[in-house]
Amino acid sequence: FHDLSPKFALSLDAGEALVMREHPHDLWLSALEVDGEVLLAFGLAGCPGHDAPLAAVALAEGHALVIAVLDAFLESARPEQTRMRHLLAAMPIEEFLQAVGRRLIGPLRRQACSHRALELPNPVGPGLPANALGVYQQSVAGRVAVGAAVPLGRLDASMLRAVAQLAAQWGDGTLRLTPWQSVLLPNVCGEHASTVMAGLHAAGLICNREQPLANIIACTGSAGCVKGLADTKTDAFKLAVLLEHHGLNLPVHLTACSRSCAAAHIAPMTLLATRAGHYDLYFRDTQQPGFGALRARDLTIEAVGALFAADSRSSTDD
């Protein structure tokens, strides 16, 4: 499988609520109960948050399915077809599923998934989904998991020490990192959840969606990427301070180039770097390609904050 693109992505979830279901993958699998039996439903070049499964296999066949899909892809794809979506644009999906089926001992269960939608949480927009933060009941009575987000995905040593101490003192020492750039401390007694949350907040983590940083995402930027035209992480922190000053909490995506590595979907508001400290501002518009409608060019972060504040006042006045 070394011939696969480094970006060829697979997703597997067990059907739980706290799972990344809105990010597209070349192959996704999601546990699904049908008539008392747990199956693995799967889809290609999409995500279970938006796409119905194509078929399912028995749980024990899950590994064999993944191998079959990868083998069929490598056999069928031309060199320029590096992702599943490229192959399926030229090859009927039924033909590909037949190639997969020939490699499996058990059957592909098409009928089990026919017109059957997975039971999923409400779709969420770009930025941190609501289920990345807060307190979540576990299957063990009286035990909860406590989640908090890392500001712009940067977990420094002092934060990590504080989180580790909380996990050891109030949980069982387990610490999990999530797909939403957040941490999760499981196996906490429910009565101690507020204490753990207060400790996470004191350590500098984001504990509720009312904080502006909870809805801002930024790529690595020029500080860590040669293609970056601006230091997006630093500028995002500046923007968060400005938004908090104006009492605003907006879903904004800062990207240091047009590749948009930090966001799988178009954000409601995108700041595309033009040079250090300057950005073009786009508002999402489904009728327009790319990031959407261009609102303003070559803005400083201070100008962006002022524009958002002016828009807010105008909307209030109206």
Rank of each mutant, 00 (worst) to 15 (best):
1 F>G: 15
2 H>Q: 14
7 K>W: 05
11 S>F: 15
14 A>V: 10
16 E>C: 09
17 A>F: 06
18 L>H: 12
22 E>G: 14
30 S>Q: 09
30 S>R: 15
37 E>P: 06
40 L>T: 11
41 A>S: 13
51 D>M: 13
54 L>S: 06
61 E>W: 01
66 V>C: 14
69 V>P: 03
71 D>L: 04
72 A>C: 08
79 P>R: 07
82 T>Y: 05
86 H>A: 14
89 A>V: 00
90 A>W: 06
93 I>L: 15
94 E>M: 11
97 L>V: 11
98 Q>S: 15
100 V>W: 06
103 R>S: 12
106 G>M: 07
109 R>L: 14
116 R>K: 12
124 V>R: 13
137 Q>P: 00
140 V>Q: 14
146 V>R: 10
148 A>G: 07
152 L>R: 06
162 A>L: 11
164 A>R: 11
166 L>D: 03
173 G>A: 05
173 G>P: 05
174 T>S: 15
175 L>Q: 05
176 R>L: 11
182 S>K: 01
185 L>V: 15
187 N>I: 00
188 V>S: 04
189 C>H: 07
191 E>I: 07
194 S>P: 02
196 V>S: 02
202 A>V: 00
203 A>L: 06
210 E>M: 05
215 N>I: 00
216 I>W: 01
222 S>E: 09
226 V>F: 03
228 G>R: 01
233 K>P: 00
236 A>G: 05
238 K>V: 03
240 A>Q: 04
240 A>D: 02
243 L>Q: 09
244 E>F: 04
245 H>C: 02
245 H>F: 06
246 H>E: 08
250 L>I: 10
254 L>S: 02
255 T>M: 02
260 S>K: 09
262 A>E: 04
262 A>S: 08
278 H>F: 13
283 F>T: 11
284 R>N: 08
284 R>M: 15
285 D>W: 07
286 T>H: 07
288 Q>D: 00
292 G>S: 11
303 A>F: 00
314 S>V: 03
314 S>H: 09
